[in-house]
Write a protein that binds this DNA or RNA. Sequence first.
DNA 1: GATTAACCGAGACGGTACGTCACGTCTTTAA
DNA 2: TTAAAGACGTGACGTACCGTCTCGGTTAATC
Lengths: 202, 202, 202, 202
Amino acid sequence: MSPVAATAASAVGDAPVPARRGRPRRADADGAILSAALQLLAEVGVGGLSMDELAQRAGVGKATIYRRWTSKESLVLDALHTATTPIPTPDEGDLRSDLITYTDALIERFGAGRGSDVLPHLIAASCYDDHLRASLDEYTRARQATTRLILGRGIERGELPPDADLDLLVDVILGPFFYRHLLTGDPLDRDFSRRLVDLVIH
Amino acid sequence: MSPVAATAASAVGDAPVPARRGRPRRADADGAILSAALQLLAEVGVGGLSMDELAQRAGVGKATIYRRWTSKESLVLDALHTATTPIPTPDEGDLRSDLITYTDALIERFGAGRGSDVLPHLIAASCYDDHLRASLDEYTRARQATTRLILGRGIERGELPPDADLDLLVDVILGPFFYRHLLTGDPLDRDFSRRLVDLVIH
Amino acid sequence: MSPVAATAASAVGDAPVPARRGRPRRADADGAILSAALQLLAEVGVGGLSMDELAQRAGVGKATIYRRWTSKESLVLDALHTATTPIPTPDEGDLRSDLITYTDALIERFGAGRGSDVLPHLIAASCYDDHLRASLDEYTRARQATTRLILGRGIERGELPPDADLDLLVDVILGPFFYRHLLTGDPLDRDFSRRLVDLVIH
Amino acid sequence: MSPVAATAASAVGDAPVPARRGRPRRADADGAILSAALQLLAEVGVGGLSMDELAQRAGVGKATIYRRWTSKESLVLDALHTATTPIPTPDEGDLRSDLITYTDALIERFGAGRGSDVLPHLIAASCYDDHLRASLDEYTRARQATTRLILGRGIERGELPPDADLDLLVDVILGPFFYRHLLTGDPLDRDFSRRLVDLVIH
DNA sequence: GATTAACCGAGACGGTACGTCACGTCTTTAA
DNA sequence: TTAAAGACGTGACGTACCGTCTCGGTTAATC
């Protein structure tokens, strides 16, 4: 989730200044808040992160936080976003290699937060918060799109039959990762990703 | 999770009676608490379930609850357990039928709690509570065992190769269900389970 | 006891304004709390006064109360203070008259709270709470000072010998009142005060 | 307060045994409870004395305590009683000496419990508990009776006028002690008792 | 000897109040 | 107008005691 109602002068061109009146928003507040949030996340997890503590660490008023994010969780999601470089879509000319490269990257990402309460907490919170649900969905959709892109290239290359059920294949590849991460706790390693990929593409 | 410090004569033999001293626990309190919890769960979800309200509805002191469960979530898990008949392991002499029967039952179970915050909440809470984690794992393991049993029969019948990677197949079948339920929100229906099963068993 | 951390410009000079930052304390909350406390005191005494009930009656959060007073008892003392006009120091030009006037006023004050648990409760609580002890002492000292002032004027007028043991006389006059009020329960009436005063000043 | 419903064969004579049926009360339980109470009183005062802790220390069930005393405070009063030898009535043939001897003894008794919350707590509790009030009154009356006896002897010896207001004198002597003990905290020492006695008897 | 009744220690019971914490909002003064 | 500060009302938390009530077991006096 992006900051709410960002000043969004954004676009390159001229934009004769939106003529915002009053004191301008502190430019560095977003950064201060997000990095304080990351620090706290690492220390106490989402469950232990209190907005009072966060505001104090960021040297910011609580209202400033609520002016920019609608909830703790959407802020957390943003914080993670800033700290996370997107996983690139591999394109090595070979379906199996691409899938393995991508799933290995996924594993690494999960591994970093192993034992963390972040994703579980966000999923739980998204039950009550539509904005958060939407933001979380963005990430989910992005991962699906990447996987689907890889699979699509496989079809183009004839590595998969043209009528392959891509929607299903995507879920079959990604589902087991999240299942293990969230529920079984079974190890997510390179061996697992290879066996999974080989199963899916025969 | 079973109530804390269950009488647990447990061990096989006769066990020379633990000779429980003091006033015994009210036998019907567990039931009263659990059914009040189920009622509240249906009304307000896990997030809205307060221990004060629960104690009042169950006609019980708060201490009585905390004496029997270590946390709200382990209680919730217990409540769900009492309200849930286990999904039987189908055995229709045919791998595909068995898998579809089982996954359809899973879907129905998910569907019953659609939009519910229960599973997400339990997963999140299990990050902080080892007992809860263990209890939740029981359920997870039970589903895996059932699936594995179905697949094992398939091997016996020659419907799967004898060296099939059962661990992986189990995750490939169950993973996508939880992935959709927890993350994508995509529909879980009979069509999905058939496509998934057909993919997995060729 | 005054509210904790009172704005307390206090000091003599101009004090360059403490420049209190943040939202100021609700000005009327003290009054609302104190008058709700008085109402509850009259209904249920100190022992029956619960902070939850008090907060609700005052239309205030519990935290707001705890922000301003350290304990129920110091709050009670404050409440009584606001509801109590100080007993004026009589000055009728005659020692006996002054003492009787003052002791009669004391009796009336005691009588108002007859059967009340307020003073006993405050004395007991002051064993654990130094702030409360100090506040309670203020009242005690004020009564002693008034009595001593009356006696001092008596010395000036020659009604008492110049070397009279004022400290002792003060305790001899006030002690029996509290002794009866707290311990014996014997009546505190005008007759008693006259006999006491006559004994003390011969 | 004596133990509730004491077997109370009491009266000297015959009393052909009340023929109590059932198991007799444990003879040593009273002692165990009282001494545990004294120990706890010294450690944490009346306010910090919990019945659970007391029962545990005495190696006794809570019901056993409540069978013998109606309240924590009456038990405390009893405990103090057992630990306290009564102050003897001095009779040295001289009013001043007798009073000073007695008041010095009183001071010593107060001094032992200096800073203690016992008397304040008992006074406060007696506002709600009539039994306790009565028990506490016994002590108060006993002190008054002793003082009055000393003064009466003084009248007999002609050291006080025959029409002296004994009720008042008693309160004038005892009142200041309790006033200082409970309210002012001023020192209670031999000097104080001498000055007080000399003031009262001229 | 069997029965009965009151006691015993242990500890669970329904309650009530506690003081703390975090929430998201509101209200100041300052920039 | 936004900022930092921090007080606000709300409401849940888990704990600590209260005084009562079972339990399974004694320990007498009565039958």
